[in-house]
């Protein structure tokens, strides 16, 4: 039998007295595109941090491809996009990507760097320092950075927040392509329409638990909003 991409068993996480996650059981198969929805403070970011291994669960078990998230082999399959762009302002776009390519052991790096730069429409600025980039350009570059090593598991934490229209369009089309390539994708977002457009499955996180786990096809965004976020004004 094929191993699931991701399996969480009774995962809990607390920060001192603050509970972030309670007894999460979750299995995600390779190639699934899952949207994680929930109010601010519901535990979405914590969940992604635990999956990526940067944060250890207080109890419970996390397995990526049947192993520990901290295993080097698993880490090389993973990419994260969040509000932290993971780029050096004092390096050019190309130099940043060269650095990541060498760390991740990307083959044929020069060509690959060109490809990802083209895919985020930054070829013309490749020799400029990231510090001189606009916010939107920096965010496009971080998408390129994340896709550079062709990760099989993508974790995206509110990737659309603060993006300009161009960057949103680019990210959506790149995510579609990643989905076609069979990559496993987890996305937290407040944008229910985009979530519906992209993902097959959705989870609703509420009060540190998975309140609902369902298929996007069976529902529509307005229904979700009504049912779960009707009193949530930050969920726009």
């Amino acid at each position: 039998m094929l191993l699931p991409a991701l399996e969480l068993t009774k995962v809990s996480k607390d920060f001192g007295r603050i509970i972030a996650l309670r007894n999460i059981d979750l299995t995600i198969q390779s190639g699934e595109f899952v949207s994680i929805l929930g109010r601010n403070g519901a535990g979405k970011t914590t969940l992604l941090n635990i999956i990526s291994g940067v944060s250890k669960p207080s109890s419970g078990l996390v397995e990526l491809y049947g192993g520990d998230p901290a295993d080097t082999e698993n880490k090389s399959k993973l990419a994260v996009i969040s509000h932290e762009v993971f780029l050096y302002n004092n390096l050019t776009a190309t130099e940043n990507l060269e650095y990541y390519a060498s760390i991740y052991g990307v083959k044929d790096a020069e060509q690959r760097i060109k490809d990802v730069l083209q895919s985020v429409e930054l070829m013309h600025r490749r020799f400029d320092l990231v510090g001189t980039f606009s916010r939107g350009m920096t965010q496009r570059l971080t998408i390129a950075r994340a896709l550079l090593h062709e990760p099989s598991l993508l974790l995206l934490d509110e990737p659309f927040t603060g993006l300009d229209q161009l960057a949103i369009g680019i990210l959506i089309s790149l995510l579609r392509k990643q989905k076609e390539l069979g990559r496993t994708i987890l996305l937290t977002t407040h944008d229910l329409h985009t979530a519906k457009e992209l993902s097959q499955r959705y989870l609703i996180l509420e009060k540190h638990r998975i309140l609902h786990d369902g298929l996007m096809a069976d529902t529509n965004p307005d229904e979700i909003r009504q049912k779960y976020f009707s009193s949530d004004r930050s969920g726009e």
């Binding site: 940067v54 080097t72 880490k75 090389s76 762009v85 993971f86 780029l87 302002n89 052991g105």
Partner: peptide, 18 residues
């Protein structure tokens, strides 16, 4: 300071590197 500026230290924790 340069490792802090854009969350780069966290990025180092994500890298497939000891």
């Amino acid at each position: 300071a340069v490792e802090k500026e854009n969350g780069n230290l966290r990025s180092m924790a994500l890298m497939p590197v000891d």
